[in-house]
């Protein structure tokens, strides 16, 4: 068995809001093997970002908290680590790329300084001169001229900013990279470039990656395994092959694939999944997907299905028992 870089067991996360307690993640189980890329797919509000923020322990203070479960990073339990210990891991062993490169960079610091900061925080022993050289190397790797390191974020385009964000995330050669929709804010041509670059760098540094996206095309291109999330739970996971070709699927997964327009078929309308994501303050009993499920059984209304395993392929649905 390969070594796991990340294992999440039975994770529960909630946000305390004025309207009530938002159950963002409800008993999530995930594993990621070393060197692999896991695609985390789901609608807006499925709890994808909350999951990665929990791994970083960057949930909004006073509002968000992990109520149950464990997160193992490279075999070490990080769930109860103190803030100062977490700071040593962030940006070093595990780093994160955020969704919107336009707002992810500090507007008043030069990009060189911002990349150097990660190294200053985690590899101060390198010394100023070596850090400076390292910044040049990293900029070169993400395809930016090193002369531009004295410039400020507003002088770069969106795609370039995302390259800078990626450079920052990879500066310390992290074991795990969490990418939260890294290409959503970019246009399609730049998307392909950035994804290709991330894949290449991931291999260079032998980093494992968790890629959040709602683009199934991106998943097919870049991931080794896929986890599909719905209302804070993984409802189906497996290898790329399991999800894209195997015969059995969770009705939600089928719905997701059906909502992709097919160029070869002559259909007049898209076929979206009917209904909306349930209110996370007030989740339905049983399987959270049952109100929208076309194949809903009686048992779905009151009993949460167990996971059924078919080798690497796991489905959480009453249809498969």
């Amino acid at each position: 068995m390969k070594k796991k870089i990340l294992e999440i067991k039975d994770l529960y996360v909630e946000y305390i809001t004025e309207d009530g307690i938002v159950h963002a993640v409800n008993g999530l189980n995930l594993e990621l093997e070393k060197g692999q890329t896991l695609g985390l797919v789901g609608e807006t509000g499925a709890g994808k970002t909350t999951t990665v923020l929990s791994i970083m322990k960057l949930l909004p203070e006073q509002i968000g908290r992990i109520t149950k479960g464990t997160i193992l990073l490279d075999g070490n339990n990080i769930t109860d680590l103190r803030e100062t210990e977490m700071q040593k891991l962030r940006g070093n062993a595990v780093s994160m790329i955020f969704q919107d490169p336009m707002t992810s960079l500090n507007p008043v610091l030069s990009v060189g300084d911002q990349i150097a900061e990660v190294l200053e925080l985690h590899q101060a022993e390198l010394g100023k001169k070596r850090i400076d050289e390292r910044v040049d190397e990293i900029l070169d790797m993400v395809g930016l001229q090193k002369e531009r390191k004295v410039e400020y974020p507003h002088q770069f385009s969106g795609g370039m900013k995302q390259r800078i964000v990626i450079a920052m995330a990879l500066a310390c050669e992290p074991k795990l990279l969490l990418a939260d929709e890294p290409t959503t804010a970019l246009d399609v041509t730049i998307q392909a470039q950035v994804l290709e670059m991330m894949n290449r760098l991931k291999d260079t540094f032998s980093t494992s990656m968790m890629l959040i996206t709602h683009d199934l095309g991106v998943v097919a291109q870049t991931c080794d395994s896929v986890a599909i999330m719905y209302a804070g739970r993984v409802i189906e996971q497996g290898t790329l092959k399991d999800i894209y070709t195997a015969g059995r699927h969770h009705p939600y997964t089928i719905g997701l694939f059906n909502s992709i327009p097919d160029l070869t078929k002559d259909t007049k309308r898209l076929s979206p999944i009917k209904g909306l994501m349930p209110d996370p303050i007030n989740l339905p009993n049983g399987c959270a997907f049952h109100p929208r499920c076309p194949e809903c059984l009686d048992v779905c209304r009151y009993e949460m299905p167990e996971e059924s395993c078919y080798g690497t392929h796991k489905i959480r649905c009453h249809l498969y028992k």
């Binding site: 970083m56 960057l58 803030e83 100062t84 700071q87 040593k88 891991l89 962030r90 940006g91 070093n92 780093s95 994160m96 955020f98 919107d100 707002t103 992810s104 960079l105 500090n106 507007p107 900061e117 990660v118 925080l121 985690h122 964000v165 920052m168």
Partner: peptide, 15 residues
């Protein structure tokens, strides 16, 4: 509340 403050924290910067 800005995103770049979250980025700074994600880098491992202290309070």
């Amino acid at each position: 509340r800005q995103d770049y403050i979250r980025t700074a924290r994600a880098k491992g910067a202290g309070k």
